[in-house]
């Protein structure tokens, strides 16, 4: 970001409002003191408006109104920390928070290792590796809504692929109503996300392709097996990509909405609800806008803490 320094041009022909009548202040000096020109301001304005209206203001509003009781009309009543007390004594919220953190854990400790394993295999360029890469990435361009619908049918009790397959191979005793069984609903909503490893795989492949081939040649001379090379050379050298993947996992887990919303509606009995779904419900079903804002604040805080945690671990690993 620092390598380019094109100074503001004095005597701008298309100048608006004549603010460029003092060209002496626009000498191409090195770093210091170029005043904030009208042109720069105008060029920044669209971006500034977008970020202000749809990101900055919402963050301020969600914090400000999280301490109020508000049904959407009338004046919000200040209740201080009341919403947060209510949130943390609401079993549905605690379940949603716990489930979201479980999404993070499953993403980090099951999904990410799967991505790494497949990336390590594809990186050795077996026959047809490009086809595998293309096919495995495919789910990333399909909407999560459609994928959730698809997996709803996969797990569907009467016409689902899973139950039909189990019946086909004579394991009828294992068939169940996956989507409406409190012990399986959460796992079922996570499954599509866990098994679609395409994005992480490509992320790791990109980083692996930057590792010099000589490292592997040297290891081969020392008689190191493929597995040994992957473990001792590749994995340490893709730690940045791993950190990035974990950041994506955290981001996705906190936004996880489509799978529980479409497949189970968060049920049965909130067993598969997530923070996003909880906020959605507080807002549109319960009309508890203050509670929805408070839950939003908790989501933001969880996001900031986890993100900071990833950076902290990465910094330790870099040392």
């Amino acid at each position: 970001m620092t390598q380019t320094q094109a100074p503001v041009v004095p005597g701008d022909r298309v100048s608006l409002s004549g603010a460029w009548s003092t060209p002496s202040t626009h000498k191409p000096t090195k770093r210091a003191g170029l005043p904030l020109g009208i042109n720069i301001f105008l060029y920044l304005l669209p971006a500034f408006l977008l970020v202000t209206v749809f990101l900055a203001v919402p963050v301020l509003v969600v914090i400000a109104l999280s301490g109020t009781d508000w049904a959407g009309i009338g004046i919000p009543q200040w209740v201080g920390a009341g919403n947060f007390v209510r949130l943390f004594s609401d079993p549905a919220f605690l379940k949603s928070l716990g489930n979201t953190l479980l999404w993070v854990l499953v993403g980090v400790f099951i999904h990410t290792p799967l991505c790494i394993i497949v990336a390590l295999i594809v990186a050795r360029k077996p026959r047809g590796w490009k086809i595998f890469r293309t096919v495995l990435f495919l789910p990333n361009i399909i909407s999560a809504t459609s994928l959730a619908l698809l997996w709803y049918f996969v797990f569907h009790v009467s016409l689902g692929l899973i139950n039909a397959s189990l019946t086909l191979v004579g394991l009828e005793s294992f068939t169940r109503n996956w989507l409406f069984d409190p012990s399986t609903a959460l796992g079922v909503t996570m499954t599509p996300w866990v098994v679609y490893i395409g994005f992480g795989m490509v992320l790791f492949l990109t980083q692996i392709s930057t590792i010099p081939q000589e490292y592997y040649e040297a290891a081969q001379l020392d008689g190191a097996s493929n597995l040994r090379q992957d473990w001792s050379i590749t994995i340490p050298l893709i730690r940045r990509a791993i950190a990035l993947q974990v950041l994506f996992v955290v981001g996705y887990a906190l936004r996880s909405f489509e799978y529980p919303f479409v497949m189970t509606s968060g049920g049965p009995a909130d067993s598969s609800s997530t923070l996003s779904l909880y906020i959605y419900r507080q807002m549109l079903t319960a009309n508890e806008y203050g509670m929805a804002m408070a839950a939003g604040v908790v989501t933001l805080i969880v996001g900031i803490v986890l993100t900071a945690g990833v950076f902290w671990v990465l910094r330790k690993a870099e040392r």
């Binding site: 990101l55 203001v57 919402p58 963050v59 509003v61 969600v62 109104l65 981001g251 906190l254 936004r255 909405f257 923070l275 996003s276 906020i279 959605y280 807002m283 806008y289 929805a292 804002m293 839950a295 939003g296 604040v297 989501t299 933001l300 969880v302 996001g303």
Partner: peptide, 8 residues
Amino acid sequence: PVNALMTP
């Protein structure tokens, strides 16, 4: 996590 901002 922008979903947190859905209410505002």
